[in-house]
Amino acid sequence: MKQRLSLALASLLAAALLSAPASAAAPAPFVSPSAWMSALGRQVLAPGYAELARSSAALAQRVDAVCKQPGDDTLDAARGAWRQAALELRRLSALPYGPALETRILRRLDFWPTRPPQIESSLRGRAAGTLADERIGVTAKGLPALEYLLFDPVRAPLTTDAAACGYASWLAADAAHDLDAILPAWQDWIASLDEIDEETEASMMSDSVNILIGGIDTLRVKYLEKPARKPTDRSGFDAWRSGEERSHLLALFDGLRLGLQGREGLPGLTAMLRGRGLLVLADRFDAQIALAGDALQALPAIPGEDGGAAIARAIETLAVLQGLLAHDAAEHLKVRVGFGDNDGD
């Protein structure tokens, strides 16, 4: 309940800060939703998913090497490959646009929290030949499941468990295969953005803004609030087994920031706002994004053990940012927010 209160207070604060009327001048170039998505697709998403496909293929090779030559060296190399691929995935997971949304690839690669009993059951069934690959569901697959097999401090290491190693190798290869399969879709999607009618632009605006709201909500609630409900227990945090909790939180926020602010040569939401004369609102976004970024940077390496105050601060700043987006930006951009609590059944 506290988090909901903080979101409300944050919204009020944001409203107060924004009480000055937006400037009528529009010195920045107008950016359409399709132009924004096209630039994001060309500069970030298509190359990002191609890189993730390569990283996943490398991970599959490294895990396979563990199975063929069990030892600390091969296991360390596989763990390093997982860290790289997982970090890339976490950054991209903030921006599920285009083929990422349509193919549900992130849902298939990123099921979390992990379900160790289902992973164990699936690997035993697969090793025994009683469970066909196509019957293994997403709850026992993906990079978080691989993290469990590679890093879990309690289960037997892959170097001493041939069945688990074989399953991990298959998981990594399966992820790489899924990522390879969607790569052509990125170019098709980007090309499709060249000729967009008015109705599709409006729909794209809705998706663009709602996906960012959903991304902030996910970071705030799924990856911070819920894990923090168990003080001193790090096991609720994403990537806790690999000790990458903090870097994953920062990677997710980096992805969101790219969507919100863009970078040199890449428009973000703030460019859309400025192009519509909403300069004050865009400035507030910049300020709040900086505050949220600082708050996340202040998280300790193991947030679940000693990050209480820092987590609370990060949640608070993200709530303000979400309020700005869901209430102020959405209203100005005429977007119906899909994450509201006041719209029907």
């Binding site: 949304l101 809705s206 709602n210 996906i211 709201i213 959903g214 119906r336 899909g338 994450f339 509201g340």
Partner: peptide, 9 residues
């Protein structure tokens, strides 16, 4: 059809 990424859209 709604998707978790876009809430109730």
């Amino acid at each position: 059809l709604t998707l978790p990424e876009t809430g109730r859209v």
